[in-house]
Design a protein around this nucleic acid. Structure first.
Length: 423
RNA sequence: GGAGAGAUGGCAGAGCGGUCGAAUGCGGCGGUCUUGAAAACCGUUGAGCCGAAAGGUUCCGGGGGUUCGAAUCCCUCUCUCUCCGCCA
């Protein structure tokens, strides 16, 4: 959520940002300012009332201590009504406070000035490309190839759990494990501390990163225990420092973590869901940074680079998109998507998205750092995939397949796969 | 799953219903001393909110209650620890 003081001081900027992100109206901004105004004046009123009644209680305490019961009685009778008034006003305040935060939660983060204004994915800007997209030629989609080699078993996944929960079999499973190791090792070399995170989180954590309210439908739930299956490691890893104050000299704090991710993906059908393109359970290595506000845009560039280097090392042609305002999402100020080329399907597949949230998540989670003046300040958070596995598996199978149907192993993965040349 | 104990500041750990935002110790920061460091000594050191500031206010696991007044009493929830059982 945004800082209400920021909204007050930059109302038009916030509204413009909303419009550019594709919100139909900006009424919520006016309403939050209105409610905030009322809230603040009521806070003031209540604080004043409490101040006098606190003073009186102390007075009573003093008199009682001196044994002056009668004098104490007089003041007691005076305070009786103030108590009721305060209680009534506090109830009012509670309603206002709730409304205020509800409204604040509905205001999206403001796009950075460097982000192109646009409405759809057509307005995204190609930031860079690496390698040449391979032509189709003999290359078949990964689902056919994987089936021929018995590397992925979609049918048994359906039997055991349901659609979108495949088995990886034999070499297929090994390839997954190799990729996870390669990604984690690379992240470690780039200064990320590895975290092995819980796969379930509680409600506070889900709220911290913004899955609740609004996006709880994307998550699988464990209602009996009040848990959510994580849709991405971003949730547990970013919440790692919830309600904490980090020291200035430890910034930037960088974590990587491998986890499975579960997403209900309600309402997704059609060709997009063939094979590994869209799953309910998939594996991902996530990169998360906690940084000083002054550096977050530099950190975004280096985060993007961290992710890009993985694709380059794997030798997979890809392109990097700078997402336009309309295609960016509620919580981000700036976002890059990395799309790998799938020669078997002749299309780009998103394998990473690297985002700056500025203080949007950190404010909600109260993650702060202690500034030079000794005061706690909200820091900035960023995250990006490094990388999502299934579409990388698709791209490897399709890119490295030979006319015979055999699949070569990318150089960097060989050490993880017995130094063989072929899968 | 059963039984018991507990939840207080960065950590440890006190706290009769009234000057308790909270003793004390450790840690942190500043200083004295020292060629430098250590030790010793002195001082300082929680966070949120309102406010231009002065100041005010809230917070002792969460929520509710009793009271003029709650860290302290009552109810409730959650979590942690110990023992037993079960178990990778």
């Amino acid at each position: 959520m945004l800082d209400i003081a920021y909204i007050r001081a930059n109302t038009e900027l916030v509204k413009t940002g909303m419009v550019n992100k594709g919100e139909k109206t900006t009424d919520v901004v006016d309403r939050v300012l209105e409610v905030d105004e009322k809230w603040r004046s009521l806070v003031h009123e209540i604080d004043t009332l409490r101040s006098t009644s606190n003073a009186r209680s102390k007075e009573i305490g003093k008199l009682m201590g001196q044994g002056k019961k009668e004098e104490a009685q007089v003041i007691m009778s005076e305070t009786a009504t103030a108590k009721d008034t305060i209680k009534r006003l506090e109830e009012e305040l509670g309603v206002l406070a709730q409304e205020r935060t509800d409204l604040l939660y509905r205001i999206p983060n403001v796009p950075h000035e460097s982000v192109p204004v646009g409405h759809t994915d057509a307005d995204n800007v190609v930031h860079s490309t690496w390698g040449d997209p391979l032509p189709q030629e003999w290359r078949v989609p990964h689902w056919d190839l994987a089936k021929d080699h018995n590397w992925i078993d979609f049918e048994r996944g359906v039997k055991v759990t349901g659609a979108g929960f495949p088995f990886y079999v034999g070499t297929g499973a090994r390839l997954q494990r190799a990729l996870i190791n390669f990604f984690l090792n690379s992240a470690a070399e780039r200064g990320y501390t590895e975290l092995q995170a819980p796969y379930f989180v509680n409600e506070d954590s889900a709220r911290g990163t913004g899955q609740i309210p609004d996006k709880e439908d994307m998550m699988y739930t464990i209602p009996r225990d009040g848990f959510f299956a994580i849709p991405t490691a971003e949730v547990p890893v970013t919440n790692f420092h919830r309600d904490e104050i980090l020291e200035l000299n430890e910034l930037p704090v960088k974590y990587c973590g491998y986890t499975p991710c579960w997403r209900r993906e309600a309402g997704s059908y059609g060709k997009d869901v063939r094979g590994l393109n869209r799953l309910h359970q998939f594996d991902k290595v996530e990169l998360v940074k906690f940084v000083h506000p002054d550096t977050s845009y530099d950190e975004l560039e280096s985060l993007r680079e961290d992710a890009e280097l993985l694709l380059q090392a794997l030798g997979l042609p890809y392109r990097t998109l700078l997402m336009c305002t309309g295609d960016m999402g509620f919580t981000q100020t700036k976002k890059y998507d990395l799309e790998v080329w799938s020669p078997g399907q002749q299309r780009w597949l998103e394998v990473s998205s690297c985002s700056n949230f500025e203080s949007f998540q950190a404010r909600r989670m109260m993650v702060r750092y202690r500034d030079e003046d000794g005061k706690p300040k909200i820091l900035h958070t960023l995250n990006g995939s490094g990388l999502a596995l299934p579409r990388i598996v698709s791209a490897i199978l399709e890119t490295y397949q030979e006319a015979s149907g055999k699949v070569r192993i990318p150089e960097v993965l060989k050490p993880f796969l017995g130094n063989s040349d072929y899968l």
